[in-house]
């Protein structure tokens, strides 16, 4: 997806930086990156520093940054939708209409990026960009500190204490799927998408998992 966009736009003063929020590190990220055959920049962020600095709470989220280094669209969902929440969990299949709608949303997101790169469309004025910034509360700031402590202790082999800090981080920042899912994945690969994940998604109720960006082609998916 990003390679296609980069190929089309690279001669138009455009760059993609894809950051893997991947506490397991390089060797976990590598096969995914190699499969994408990227010409753009792919970086590995074992401590989720980028998520913390930008107040990101899920993947994929994207920020549009202009030539001056100014955020013209703060973090928002980058082309993904909540159609996955309607899948049949027994067979793990999605209805054809939902598959099509999901694909259309991805195309709509890429169209919006193309329009921005070529004509500046959809870049938010400063006031609107500030409005769209994520909230950073003291609990969120503490969650990031605990997350880093938990990761470090895990690296030292102190699993029991690590788990306590990671769980507390997730509790303090309940909006962050990044923290919860990364911690679940560190417990065991697959846990980030397991039964506890689906239970947590279900408990969102009417709230979105992937909040739709304010761009053409996006609206909240009823679940």
């Amino acid at each position: 997806m990003w390679q296609q966009l980069y190929s089309e736009l690279k001669s138009e003063n455009f760059m993609v930086v894809a950051v893997a929020e991947e506490s397991r590190g390089n060797e976990t990220a590598r096969p995914w990156i190699e499969q994408a055959k990227p010409e753009y920049l792919c970086l590995v962020d074992t401590e989720h520093l980028v998520a913390a600095r930008y107040g990101m709470v899920n993947v994929p989220q994207a920020v549009w940054i202009d030539e001056h280094g100014t955020m013209v669209r703060p973090p928002e969902t980058a082309g993904s939708t909540d159609h996955f929440r309607r899948m049949d969990l027994a067979t793990r299949t999605m209805a054809p209409d939902d598959m099509a709608a999901r694909l259309a949303a991805r195309q709509a997101y890429m169209d919006a990026v193309r329009a921005w790169v070529r004509t500046g469309t959809y870049a938010l004025p400063a006031d609107a960009a500030r409005e769209a910034l994520p909230e950073i509360t003291p609990d969120i700031a503490m969650a990031d500190v605990l997350f880093r402590l938990g990761l470090y202790l895990r690296g030292q082999g102190n699993m029991a204490e690590s788990a306590v800090h990671l769980a507390e981080a997730a509790r303090l920042h309940p909006e962050s799927w990044n923290i919860w899912r990364q911690a679940a994945d560190l417990d065991a690969i697959g846990n980030a998408g397991g039964a506890a994940f689906w239970q947590r998604v279900k408990s969102l109720g009417d709230r979105p998992y992937y909040p739709p960006p304010d761009l053409p082609g996006f609206k909240q998916v009823p679940v």
Binding site: L5, V19, W32, V59, W64, V117
Partner: peptide
């Protein structure tokens, strides 16, 4: 112009 995007495995 830079698209900064996150992902994960």
């Amino acid at each position: 112009k830079t698209l900064l995007v996150t992902w994960a495995s």
